[in-house]
């Protein structure tokens, strides 16, 4: 009888990733409401002993390859934080065990004794609440900051070592940390960082480039640099980067308008962005009427501070 809720614990050199810690922190509460026991799977000894402070049962998979062992037989629920690894692993586990899978959830709770999740649909144009088919394993990943991280409650769980099943047919030949940032067309960015006249010179776009690189590293997503018509006309940036009515229309998940006043020309090009952040020194700039978050200030001070904040967060 499956009676456990497993948390997949991702770690970086023994350090538990923050999103995994958030899920670990919520695991006991959710497991309790479902009448399950919280447990964890880790691939690193240090991470396993840290996880054992949150839950009573920890499987330490040794020699884990790209795709570790199948779902434990006693798993009723598997939770993980959203990550590229989770996107590979979770659907795999769910399919192999005929389970229910929902990834990248923005809320997860127990209602009337069963799990209920929320996530965006239709490219963010709508959001849905989802139920799971009963009597099957449920495999779910949740995004960062859906749950709050908390200090371990001080249990000391048992750690069971288990050898991972070897992944077949896949061999990583090289892994290059210093690989160049993946730059994509402005229409393809998951995040677009766009600059305007408020950056004061073409050279100052370096601060935007740095922010873009930092965001690419932090999120693993595709990040593009964009520009307002004014700076394209001034030949600070190439036409390919122009966002707006006579340039390109963009629909990123997150859009930064930096030193862009917000002419309707520009607004028409960003109408489909999900979240818009405006940074401008003029508190009356029209861009603030079309943004979700705003900082009034000099872009050349705010952007380096933002880059630092993302690096240290």
């Amino acid at each position: 009888m499956p009676d456990k809720l497993y948390v997949i614990v991702e770690s970086n050199g023994g350090e538990i990733r923050s999103v995994s810690r958030e899920v670990l922190s919520a695991a006991r509460g959710i497991a309790g409401e479902l009448g399950l026991t919280a447990a964890a799977v880790a691939t690193n000894a240090d991470a396993a002993s840290e996880a054992a402070k949150y839950v009573t049962h920890v499987v330490h998979l040794t020699n884990a390859g790209l795709i570790p062992t199948p779902l434990p037989e006693d798993a009723a629920v598997v939770l993980a934080g959203s990550s590229p690894l989770a996107r590979d692993l979770l659907p795999y586990l769910a399919a192999a065990s005929a389970g229910c899978y929902l990834g990248d959830c923005t809320a997860l709770r127990v209602e009337a004794g069963v799990l209920v999740a929320e996530r965006p649909m239709l490219g963010g144009k709508a959001a849905g609440t989802f139920a799971f088919e009963p009597d099957r394993p449920i495999v779910v990943s949740v995004r960062a900051h859906v749950f709050a991280a908390s200090d371990p409650p001080g249990v000391s769980g048992e750690i069971i070592e288990q050898a991972a099943v070897e992944s077949k047919g896949i061999e990583v030949l090289s892994s290059d940390r210093a690989a160049e940032d993946r730059r994509v067309d402005v229409t393809e960015g998951d995040i677009v960082v766009a600059g305007g006249r408020g950056l004061k010179s073409a050279d100052n776009f370096a601060v935007l480039e740095e922010l873009a690189g930092t965001l690419a590293n932090a999120t693993g997503g595709a990040v593009a640099v964009g520009a307002s018509r004014a700076v394209v006309d001034a030949k600070w940036r190439p036409y390919e980067e122009q966002v707006g009515k006579s340039g390109k229309s963009v629909a990123p998940k997150l859009y930064f308008a930096v030193g862009i006043s917000g002419q309707i020309h520009h607004i028409l090009g960003i109408d489909r962005a999900q979240v818009v952040v405006a940074i401008n020194s003029d508190p009356d700039a029209p861009i603030f009427k079309y943004a979700d978050y705003g900082i009034v200030g000099d872009a050349l001070q705010v952007i380096p501070a933002l880059t630092e904040a993302i690096k240290s967060a």
Binding site: G128, P283, D292, I295
Partner: peptide, 24 residues
């Protein structure tokens, strides 16, 4: 295996939150 049970469509109009303070 997974069933959507209800939907919402977020309001298109944005309402700005200005974040105050020193740049950092």
């Amino acid at each position: 295996t997974v069933k959507p049970v209800s939907f919402t469509v977020p309001d298109k109009a944005r309402s700005i939150s200005i974040i105050e303070g020193e740049p950092a």
